[in-house]
Design a protein around this nucleic acid. Structure first.
Lengths: 330, 330
DNA sequence: CTGTTAGCGCATTCAA
DNA sequence: TTGAATGCGCTAACAG
């Protein structure tokens, strides 16, 4: 019996009235076991609900272990996830590094997973996407000397790759202004996402309260449509909309079409991210260099795998405007 | 020294002229270590390039282990991956089951990963998406009694959830015929994807060689455009196109527009999958119930976690046509 | 503050 | 075909 009451191989052996070696044999599919014995063992396993310990098996097996990177990321955005992961996965495999991905839907899960990963020493390197951590957690990581990198968001004291989301909003705003917009509205996102909050702050910094803001609670086309409806209710003469994300921007375009407002003649629209298919929609948007996130992470991880204490320089990648059909030409 | 030449904690201790407990202390960030001693240990760790064994640490730490599901899937399709994973991740977390996802870009990687996962006994359950295995591998899984489920594709002898891809092509074909198409072309995908091959076979089964086929080497808009160009070169009077995937179908629509062929009046188009945003494009398509893949997998895994030997019934989910604007009304 | 010692739960000889 | 004994590499008392 283990400390927490789970059965061990000794319990099984005793229960089945055999030696532990025999239990091990049936477990591993060795042929040199008499059928009645095998059955007795199987029954004991069933009855005691035994699951062999992975750690003990590996240790006893004397096998080599590959270094492992654990990545924590919110999988809510398929595009983001995919763009970052795909350059990473291949490169890590080639470098002999294991990648395990865990979904982090909310902060509670984040802390639960981190607690487990750290207490289990489940990995040699850690990658945290679209999230940050508190000072005590940071201290914990340092004292365990677990190399950790942050992707998509800055974390003081740790290497990170990110973009300046506030600057992104500024770019959207200035761009619309330069194309003649005088009454601009903003479609924001839930403020529990750091990036969305920063984008809103960037807008406030440049435009103050002059720009009406409507929040899309989810990044869906429908929310975008509803948001435009609300913006128009507040200002019928709206001539430009900037969105925190491309998807609601598509909704804005749809709603505009239904209301017979021509894009870009009557209403100009700018998205954020440049997700797949946005070129087909002809959406002008702020491009986020997601693939470069993955590339940077790959380099950082490969470096850390060789030299765990290496000082990795954080990177701040550039955003840029992609001009397409939802805004007027210069 | 381990059998394969890696350093152990004893090597570090000897090298740093301390006891192994001290090495363990600096490793785990315990404060009760004199600074010079700590430095000596750190230096020894550096010099010998030591990485402590995860297995040994976990075993010695006496911590409980949560059952783990390892999922192997090709991450090339963000949508597919996301649709299947998101219902799964939350449910598994709630059930106290760990989920680790590994990318499988090709068959070689698949076998390498499987070899490792099996030899390391890295998990209690296995989920294989969009792939199948040979008879020897199946035998290996059985002899290790590792519960394994297949998602997106059938594997004889194992529980699986899948759709009838051949029937999906039939649905596309019959649907276009019922809407008046008489000269139908097909945009297929790379045949190393089982699902794509099945879809092509389904077409052959119902239409024989009557339908011209052009292959899109990648599921991109550009490939779809090129495919339509080739189809039209073969038959100028083409009046319907069925696609193996929604994305090239978007390309087909684009190319048609550039060539002044009205959709659906001159040319009707049907996609496959019903990916996100396809409703915005108004693409008629065959809907694949991806979320149900995830739901089924979740139920199966929860069952297997309790009862590893449980007989899970395979599921064959229904496809259906989503009628939108790229085909004529009934 | 540090070293010695005793397990962790299993796979694997080696005898029987 | 089976069982007893040994050790995997580490953590955590327990002494010193």
């Amino acid at each position: 019996m283990t400390a927490d009451g789970r059965a061990t191989i000794y319990d099984i052996a005793r229960h089945a009235k055999v030696g532990i070696a025999t239990v091990s044999r049936v477990l591993n599919g060795s042929s040199r076991v008499a059928e009645p014995t095998r059955l007795a063992v199987r029954r004991a396993v069933e009855e005691l609900g035994w699951r062999p310990s992975r750690a003990a098996r590996r240790l006893a097996a004397r096998g080599a272990e590959r270094p492992r990177l654990v990545a924590l990321m919110p999988l809510f955005s398929a595009t983001f996830y995919h763009a970052v992961t795909s350059p990473l996965a291949g490169g890590l495999a080639a470098a002999g590094i294991d990648l395990a991905i865990y979904d982090v839907p909310d902060r509670e899960t984040k802390n639960r997973l981190l607690d487990r990963v750290l207490s289990e020493r489940a990995c040699e390197m850690l990658m945290l996407c679209s999230m940050r951590i508190g000072e005590d957690r940071a201290e914990q990581l340092r004292s365990l000397s677990l190399p950790t990198i942050f992707v998509d968001y800055e974390q003081p004291g740790f290497p990170s790759v990110s973009v300046d989301n506030r600057a992104g909003s500024e770019m959207q705003y200035r761009y619309l202004r330069s194309r003649g917009c005088r009454r601009i509205g903003y479609v924001g996102g839930p403020s529990d996402a750091h990036a969305y909050r920063d984008r809103l702050e960037g807008l406030r910094a440049i435009a103050g309260d002059e720009v009406p803001v409507e929040i899309a609670q989810a990044m869906t086309v429908g929310e975008g449509r509803a948001a435009l409806a609300r913006l128009l209710a507040r200002d019928k003469r709206l001539d430009g909309v900037m969105c925190v994300n491309d998807i609601p921007a598509i909704g804005v375009m749809e709603e505009a079409r239904l209301r017979r407002r021509r894009v870009p003649q009557d209403l100009q629209v700018v998205g954020f991210d440049d997700q797949p298919l946005m070129d087909v929609f002809g959406l002008s948007t702020v491009r986020q260099p997601l693939a470069q996130f993955g590339d940077w992470a790959l380099q950082a991880i490969r470096r850390l795998a060789v030299e765990p204490g290496a000082a990795i320089a954080s990177a701040r990648l550039d955003l840029d405007i992609v001009e397409r059909g939802t805004t007027k030409p210069a």
